[in-house]
Amino acid sequence: MTVLVTGGTGFVGGFVVEALLRRGDDVRVMGRAPGCFSAPVGFVRGSLDPGRDMSAAFDGVTRLVHAAFDHVPGRYRGGEGDDPKTFRHRNLDGSVALFQAAKRAGVERAVFLSSRAVYGVQPPGANLTEQMEPHPDTLYGEVKLAAERALAAMSDDGFRGVSLRVTGVYGPDAAGRPHKWSDLFDDYLTGWPVEPRRATEVHGDDVAAAVLAALDAPEPPPVLNVSDILLDRNDLLAIVQAATGSPHQLPPRSSEPVNAMDCALLRSLGWQPGGRDLLDRTVRAMF
């Protein structure tokens, strides 16, 4: 299997590339510059430019994983900055052009990394299922949902698209980049007040495993939720406290209602995330 991964040098894309390499796939990465991986990968220079001819990138490729996203550094929601028109043009029109090029080249399957942001505003505390009507309340969510729908409209017997609605992703810090909780941990260890909060999370390795499941399943659903744990900052920082011996008080538990994600469809494909044990191991390894 030859897999082209867009955005493979990014945080989430890196987990996907490494998972493909571990199982022996031929991997190509599309991006602005080559990355550093555990084994050789092919490199295709490219970006989310709908006016660019991307046909050569798909020579010999049988699978596409689209993880690239053009945004203000460090921000997804609100990643349009002060230029929403360009944000939409690159991330929506650019994604649609990429899917079209893949289909014309004979790619059999495309996996798109979408986001839980497509759900937007839902009843407080309700579980999010793939059958719910999305109500995105950010431009980020709107663009992801529009790209999902474009991919679904292109899908047929020869080209199947699968969109993964991924929640917040955590994992070890990548080379030269702090992990997502760096500032939070610093605040806690310094003794500064930490606001209560709960959120859904999934490890990058589990996102990669979801991508592999979507690539391999004979007839995967067109949309799959990807989430593992509902995490309170109190529980997260309790791991930090145990790992460091910090004397500082933990924040109170959040009473805020959170929409957990139902991942029964993904689990039916054999996906088994790492849960609290993986969270504990990952956080402890950060110290």
Rank of each mutant, 00 (worst) to 15 (best):
V3L: 03
T6P: 01
G7A: 01
G10H: 12
V12I: 12
A19K: 07
L20Q: 11
R22G: 07
R23P: 07
R23G: 09
D26V: 12
D26P: 06
R28P: 12
V29G: 14
A33E: 15
P34D: 13
V41F: 11
F43Y: 14
R45M: 07
S47D: 15
L48G: 15
D49F: 14
G51N: 08
M54T: 13
S55T: 15
A56L: 05
A56M: 06
A56N: 03
D59V: 13
V65N: 07
A67G: 14
H71S: 13
H71C: 15
G74H: 13
P84T: 03
H89K: 10
H89R: 15
N91S: 12
L92A: 10
G94T: 08
S95E: 08
E108I: 09
V111A: 07
V111L: 12
F112P: 06
S115W: 12
P123S: 05
G125E: 05
N127A: 14
E133K: 13
P134R: 07
L139P: 02
Y140K: 02
G141K: 05
E142F: 06
V143K: 00
R149E: 06
R149Q: 08
R149M: 01
R149L: 09
A150Y: 03
D157Y: 06
G158K: 08
G161P: 02
G161H: 07
V162T: 09
L164K: 05
R165A: 00
R165I: 00
R165Q: 09
V166I: 15
G168T: 13
G168Y: 14
V169F: 12
A175Y: 15
A175V: 14
K180Q: 08
W181V: 04
S182C: 09
L189S: 01
T190S: 15
T190E: 15
W192T: 10
P193L: 04
V194G: 08
P196R: 01
R198M: 01
H203K: 06
D206C: 02
A213F: 06
A213L: 03
A214I: 09
L215W: 09
D216W: 10
P218M: 04
P220G: 06
P221Q: 02
P221T: 04
P222I: 01
P222E: 11
V223D: 04
L224T: 05
D228C: 11
D228I: 11
D228G: 11
D232N: 02
L237E: 11
L237N: 08
V240Y: 05
A243K: 01
S246D: 00
P247V: 07
P247H: 08
L250V: 01
P251K: 05
P252F: 03
R253K: 01
R253A: 02
P257M: 01
P257R: 03
A264F: 02
A264N: 00
L266S: 03
R267E: 12
S268G: 08
Q272I: 14
Q272F: 09
Q272K: 13
L278S: 02
L278N: 03
L279M: 15
D280Q: 14
V283F: 05
R284E: 05
F287V: 08
